[in-house]
C-alpha cells in the first residue's frame, strides 16, 4: 500500500468533501510529505488557473447559455406518448403479456420515440429473476432485479427489417441484434417474433434499449453511431435521449439496473 494519499483523496480534500477528522489527518500528512504537498498544490493551482482564465461572471453566463441550449433540446424532444394496452395470452408460458401500442394520433410523424405504426408492436420481456416474467413499460424507467434478463419481440406489420441496440449509462452502445452487418430481415407472419437469445444487462444505473423496425436494411454501425449521437445530445443521460436519427419506426425502453 502506498504511503502517499491518492490524488483523488487529495482532490476531495481540496473540494471540502472529507469528514473533519480525515481531512485534518490528510492535511497534516500533506504538510510533511513533499509528493502529496505538491499534488495538493497542483490541484489548488487548477482552481487558481480557472479563476484567472474564466472569471466567475463569464462562468455563470456560460452555464446559463448551456442551460438554455439544454432547454431548447428538451423542447425538441417528442412528448411522451400515451399507450393503449391490450392483453393477450401467451400460449407457451400462460403468462399475461401487455402489448403496448401508440395512439393513432402520432402515427404520421414517421419517426419518434416509440414510433411504431398502427399494427406493429414491440415488446421487451423481463424474466429469469426471482419474480414473475413481465413486460417492461415504455413510458417510464423499468427497474430490473438482480439476475433478470431481457428478451425483445416484435410484430412487424409490413416492416421488413429489425435491429436492436442498447446504450448504458456510460454511453457504451452495444448492438444486441444483429451484432454487426445490417439489420436482420423480419420473420414472416403476423405473430409476435422474438429475437434470438436474451441479455443480462450488467453493471448498474440506467440502460436504454432501442428496437428499430425499418423498410430497408440499416447498417448496424450507423445505428450505433446514431445512438452515440443521441447520448451525447442528451449530455450523457440515457433517460433523456431523443429518438435516434435513423429511418424506420423505433421503440425505446429505459431499464434501471440493480
Amino acid at each position: 500500500m502506498s504511503a502517499h494519499e491518492s490524488e483523488w483523496t487529495l482532490r476531495r480534500l481540496s473540494a471540502g468533501e472529507l469528514a473533519a477528522a480525515e481531512a485534518a489527518r490528510i492535511r497534516a500528512h500533506a504538510a510533511g510529505c513533499a509528493a502529496c504537498g505538491a499534488t495538493l498544490r497542483g490541484i489548488e493551482k487548477d482552481q487558481t488557473a480557472l479563476e484567472a482564465q474564466v472569471p466567475f461572471e463569464r462562468f455563470e453566463a456560460g452555464v446559463e447559455r448551456a442551460l438554455q441550449r439544454q432547454k431548447r433540446n428538451e423542447t425538441l424532444r417528442v412528448p411522451p406518448r400515451r399507450w393503449v394496452a391490450t392483453t393477450v395470452a401467451m400460449a407457451a408460458s400462460v403468462l399475461l403479456v401487455l402489448l403496448a401500442r401508440p395512439l393513432l394520433s402520432h402515427q404520421d410523424e414517421g419517426r419518434g420515440l416509440n414510433g411504431i405504426k398502427g399494427g406493429a408492436v414491440a415488446e421487451l420481456r423481463i424474466g429469469g429473476g426471482a419474480g414473475p416474467q413481465r413486460e417492461a413499460r415504455k413510458d417510464a424507467p423499468e427497474p430490473l432485479a438482480p439476475g433478470e434478463r431481457v428478451r425483445l419481440g416484435y410484430q412487424a406489420d409490413g416492416h421488413r427489417y429489425v435491429a436492436a441496440v442498447s446504450v448504458d449509462a456510460s454511453g457504451e452502445v452495444t448492438p444486441l441484434h444483429p451484432e454487426s452487418g445490417e439489420s436482420a430481415p423480419v420473420e414472416p407472419g403476423a405473430d409476435m417474433h422474438w429475437l434470438p437469445g436474451s441479455w443480462e444487462l450488467t453493471g448498474s444505473g440506467g440502460e436504454r434499449v432501442v428496437l428499430v423496425l425499418s423498410d430497408a436494411p440499416l447498417a448496424v454501425e450507423s445505428l450505433v453511431d446514431a445512438a452515440r449521437r443521441a447520448f451525447q445530445a442528451a449530455s450523457g443521460d440515457v433517460e433523456r435521449m431523443a429518438p435516434l436519427d435513423v429511418p424506420g419506426e423505433q421503440t425505446h425502453w429505459v431499464l434501471r439496473k440493480p
Binding site: Q53, V54, F59, G62, V63, R65, A66, L67, R69, Q70, S235, G236, D237
Partner: peptide
C-alpha cells in the same frame, strides 16, 4: 481551451438541471 470551457459549462448546467 475553448471547447474545454464550453464542455465545463455543459457539465455544470447538467448539475443544475439534475
Amino acid at each position: 481551451a475553448t471547447r474545454a470551457e464550453d464542455a465545463m459549462h455543459d457539465v455544470f448546467a447538467r448539475a443544475l438541471t439534475h
